[in-house]
Structures are given as structure tokens and as C-alpha cells.
């Protein structure tokens, strides 16, 4: 019975890895909260001057790799946005 359990026990390391990846992606964002929030507001303001957009469709993220911190900006612009701005 015990032997059976030993061989069938699921591996735990992949769970550790996944939990950490999710948690740290979140925590890195929260720790840099001020900067990310400020950047988001200002980027939004600049783009809104030229195209009409939905504030909820803008995401600003900070991530890190070996050499640098990466600022990721994702802006969704509606198809007819420029026309609206021009009008």
C-alpha cells in the first residue's frame, strides 16, 4: 500500500513553480504600484489627445528579466477611433 502511494504520488515542484510565477507577477506589479499608476495616467492622457479610447482598454505592466525591467503598454484602439477624434 505504501509502495503504491510512493510511486503514484503527484510531483509537487511544478505546483510550486506555477504558484510562484502567478504570485510574483502580481507582487512585482503591486510593489511598483505608484510608478505604474502614474505612467498609466500620463500615457492615457497623451494618447487621448489624439485618439478617442476607452480607459479600461489600457494596461500598463512592469516585468523583469536578467538585464532590465520591461515596461509593457497595451492600448486597444477602436477601429473608428481616429475618425471620431478628427471629427
Amino acid at each position: 500500500m505504501n509502495m503504491f502511494r510512493l510511486f503514484n504520488r503527484p510531483k509537487s515542484a511544478p505546483a510550486a513553480r506555477e504558484r510562484l510565477q502567478v504570485l510574483l507577477a502580481h507582487e512585482r506589479m503591486v510593489v511598483g504600484t505608484d510608478l505604474v499608476a502614474v505612467l498609466r495616467e500620463e500615457i492615457l492622457a497623451v494618447i487621448a489627445k489624439h485618439v478617442q479610447l476607452d480607459a479600461d482598454r489600457v494596461t500598463v505592466k512592469m516585468d523583469r528579466d536578467e538585464h532590465c525591467t520591461i515596461l509593457e503598454i497595451d492600448v486597444e484602439i477602436p477601429l473608428n477611433a481616429s475618425a471620431q477624434a478628427a471629427a
Binding site: K11, A13, R17, L20, E66
Partner: peptide, 20 residues
Amino acid sequence: RAERGDMLKVDDVLEILSIP
């Protein structure tokens, strides 16, 4: 233990922390 899948491997930790 790492080979058995019950401990984070070197590469797992390196990938998460991204420092040499």
C-alpha cells in the same frame, strides 16, 4: 529530490528570479 519532482530545480528558480 529535484529529479524526483519534489523540489524546485535550479532552472525553475533561475527562470523565476532572473539573476545569474
